[in-house]
Design a protein around this nucleic acid. Structure first.
Lengths: 322, 322
DNA sequence: CTGAAAGCGCTTACAG
DNA sequence: CTGAAAGCGCTTACAG
């Protein structure tokens, strides 16, 4: 690999001059800089970021950590975040899963953003997180022990969904998915706030995948007291549930209304374009980029930053039959 | 951040001893090592990989570059690759898009794998690639100028798909998607090899997204001479096409058979479980991990490594009506 | 306007 | 068995 010293020799200057020229130090005479730049260009010199970061502590790289890529939500957020960071002069590298905290405690990037992934052991996570001696925050968590974070107000989101269904005349509203406590709590609170009743069988068990949603409906026994509308835990669960409903012969939305959580492009391409509730994803990414950059700059930041989910009305919700 | 020197001071030894102890150098007395390890553990010492790589040239990190995350194919490959690399003692970091070559010419990871993404300018890519002074290769390309690569034999894959359809009695076989020359060529060659006819209108234009596939069918005028079977360019295009076919009132596979390219989990959850052709994704990842590790070790490697796509028979293909 | 020198946090021959 | 020293490729006060 060609280094700054090679360039120095070739350009006939000292290597500290090369460094300055390369970094646009105004003290270097334009002619000298031109020469250095020309030589560097000609030999395809590339700065060694590792060395730069060792020397200055800056790499202009931000790490993003998530636990899985299989949900389109994450690809979407990654893509948006990447674009937003680029605008601000940073490159983004992505790391999957629990390595995340580990790798970035060793690979000293300028800052890192962690998606609030499902954890068996939150305690352990926050402990590790605390040792991450760099600007960082958790994206999408509901709270964080004395550190900045971005909160998605999922409860309020679910409430909006319930409200929407109520306004359409639904009084028996079910929820598909029991793997995220916050959403479940949001659902329960929303029913209370709207004065709607909650029966135990309104909550169908489902974890997070398409199949989970599909089988949640398949395994559910419909009766006269069953919900006339459902809210799905996430995009995948919702689409699985939709498929099962259609296969069972229900018309969505005439027989049953359905709202999905997280507004991803594929929600509108479902068999029935899905009404969704979810955080505006571009805004989420922009806020995340903004926050991490502020933290890196050492600016005072107010936290949590709260993102409000929005209702996107499409074709899977309609006036209740009865 | 706590460094090796801090540990040295706390443990009462020199910092070179700390380094050796941490790296399991057998020359260090067990008692000394224990002490050092204990202090390091207590203070949550984390090695600075940047410094290590500068000194030794090794980071145990491998970069993976792709151009988009929006196709589930890439999440799948990333996930598998991550797992395979982990088995071999490496961490993986992911980078999106054209930055890829750039970032890794500056961030000196031990090696990098580049997905063969769609490029306007292949020339420029290979030129940049050549300056990437580290073990690296392109995954899924059809050829590479004097460098190792992994080829997916897409033409042979398409041939298998055509053969399968022919064996079901289809003689008019269409192709949805015109954005990947190799697949299109594979399609044409397959029709020749099987002695089937090709009409210009058998190829429906579509780029790569769900919508592309959907509108390809929507905009197509069916007639008595239309194909009785289609092969879709990729998973998204195929699913979009399937939706459009169903909406148009066709029964898949009774009226029209459909084969999709790339065997991803969601293909079987389509409205009709899709017969697919595609590379075995776990094998692909395993081979990729194996190759990059060999290259890093400087072992002699045979290339290209060729992956053969496989046909996965499900419910979207059936005997032709006529 | 340019250069010599110290330093970032490690590793590793080389002495002892 | 341990330590002092040089070096990896940069940057940056400090001299000149």
């Amino acid at each position: 690999m060609i280094t700054i010293k090679d360039i120095a020799k070739l350009a006939g200057v000292s290597y500290s001059t090369v460094s300055k020229a390369l970094n646009g130090d105004p003290r270097i005479k334009p002619a000298t800089r031109q020469k250095v730049l020309a030589v560097a260009e000609k030999h395809q010199y590339r700065k060694n970021i590792m060395a730069q970061q060792l020397s200055t502590g800056r790499s202009n790289i931000i790490g993003f950590v998530l636990d899985e890529l299989s949900n389109p939500l994450f690809s979407n957020i990654s893509g948006n975040l990447h674009a937003e960071l680029k605008k601000r002069g940073y490159q983004m590298i992505l790391v999957v899963a629990d390595d995340g905290v580990d790798i970035f405690s060793q690979l000293r990037v300028d800052g890192c953003i962690l998606w609030d992934y499902a954890l068996e052991d939150r305690e352990a996570f926050w402990k590790k997180f605390a040792t991450l001696n760099m600007p960082c925050f958790v994206l999408g968590t509901d709270e964080a022990p004395n550190s900045p974070y971005i909160k998605i107000d999922r409860k309020e989101g679910i409430y909006k969904a319930v409200q929407h269904l109520q306004s359409l005349g639904h009084s028996r509203i079910g929820f598909i998915g029991n793997s995220q406590n916050i959403k479940l709590e949001g659902y329960r609170e929303a029913l209370q706030r709207t004065g709607l009743g909650l029966e135990p069988h309104y909550v169908l068990p489902a974890h997070s995948s398409w199949e989970d949603g599909y089988f949640a409906i398949r395994n559910y026994t419909f009766g006269p007291e069953s919900p006339t509308a459902f809210i799905g835990l996430n995009n995948l669960v919702t689409r699985g549930a939709l498929r099962a409903l259609l296969e069972a012969g229900y018309n969505v939305p005439k027989d049953i209304s359905l709202i999905g959580y997280d507004d991803l492009p594929d929600m509108q391409y479902a068999e029935v374009a899905l009404t969704t509730i979810g955080p505006p994803l571009e805004e989420l990414a922009a806020q995340a980029a903004e926050l991490i950059v502020s933290l890196i700059r050492g600016e005072q930041t107010e936290y949590p930053v709260v993102i409000q989910p929005q209702l996107n009305h499409r074709s899977s919700t309609a006036v209740s039959r009865k």
